[in-house]
């Protein structure tokens, strides 16, 4: 009986820790709601946008998203592994190999947006160096969240790219990108980040501005699962299991609830391809996208011609 009691006690302790963290997260969100109320009172022209399933003033979304990612920054990879059973690593590998960075006679300048932890940037540099023998291609990692950037910077110090200066981290809003000059980028990548931006069309606009003619825009993002029975199964998994995993692993269920909800709210592959085309890009291939794992994720590619 004493032996049985120990694991139960441990589980309860973890549960309590989760509850405490949730309370703190809730408190933070409460503060945000108070602020938003105040903001709404003072500015009657405020527009609403969605934050997961909630509607919030447009100017508040950025702040709320920042909090979400600050909250999960340190446990980001562990949580991603748990949620996708490691498949997100395969998706990212496919994403980078499709782009084939470094396959060029001149050194490439690549911008990875919303890639603070460096997952995509390091894969790009590995591919360019090992697969294409290119030791001059450089990657700029831009992220709006300094906590994610600091994780990425710390990780980069363990790679050969830090000393050679081939990777750079800058704090940037994807909708503004004021530190990146016009027509200066060969390849623009954004993985699991565009759905968190308040104005997706503005992000696409900026992507178009910074790319050189012939430059490639590529986006890895969650999409709609097909066929229907599988979609329902995935939905149940998303809304019931993932927040629970968030509680257990990262001690933060509210942030992961937001992540699941934002996936649900993001447009489907065809609609998003149209948005990319409307921004001025020519879609790659016939449709402009390639689905992965029954549509859980999709790679969208466009070229600035």
């Amino acid at each position: 009986m004493s032996r049985l009691r120990a694991p139960v006690a441990k589980f309860l302790a973890d549960g309590l820790k989760g509850i405490r963290s949730t309370a703190l997260a809730g408190s933070r969100l409460s503060n945000c709601r108070y602020t938003s109320t105040s903001s709404k009172d003072t500015d009657t022209s405020s527009h609403m946008t969605h934050f997961g399933f909630k509607d919030v003033p447009e100017d508040e979304k950025e702040h709320l998203v920042k909090n979400v990612f600050s909250s999960v920054a340190k446990k980001y990879d562990e949580m991603n592994d748990a949620m996708s059973l490691g498949i997100h690593r395969l998706w990212k590998n496919i994403f980078v190999s499709r782009l084939n960075p470094g396959n060029s006679t001149v050194p490439m300048k690549i911008l990875d947006v919303a890639g603070g932890t460096g997952d995509i940037a390091f894969r790009i540099l590995n591919h360019a160096t090992n697969h294409n023998g290119d030791r001059n291609t450089r990657v700029i990692v831009a992220d709006i969240n300094p906590d994610m950037l600091s994780v990425g910077l710390r990780r980069s110090k363990k790679t050969p790219y830090y000393d050679s200066g081939r990777v750079e981290f800058i704090e940037q809003n994807a909708e503004i990108l004021d530190k990146i000059p016009d027509n200066s980028i060969d390849m623009y990548t954004i993985a699991f980040g565009i759905r968190n931006c308040t104005h997706i069309p503005k992000v696409l606009e900026q992507a178009y501005r910074v790319l050189k003619p012939g430059g490639v825009f590529s986006c890895l993002e969650f999409s709609k699962v097909y066929p229907a029975p599988l979609a329902e199964l995935y939905r149940q998994y998303s809304f019931k299991i993932l927040p629970l995993l968030g509680t257990i692993i990262a001690g933060d269920s509210q942030s992961y609830e937001y992540l699941v909800e934002s996936i649900e709210r993001f447009p489907d592959a065809k609609t998003f391809a149209k948005m990319i085309e409307d921004a001025g890009f020519t879609l790659a291939g016939e449709t402009g996208y390639e689905t992965l794992s029954f549509g859980i994720a999709a790679i969208h590619t466009g070229i600035k011609l």
Binding site: M187, G214, G215
Partner: peptide
């Protein structure tokens, strides 16, 4: 692509 001024056209445009 080069005839139109794209010095280094990506393979992504024509995957096949």
């Amino acid at each position: 692509g080069q005839a139109l001024g794209y010095s280094n056209l990506s393979k992504a445009l024509f995957p096949s």
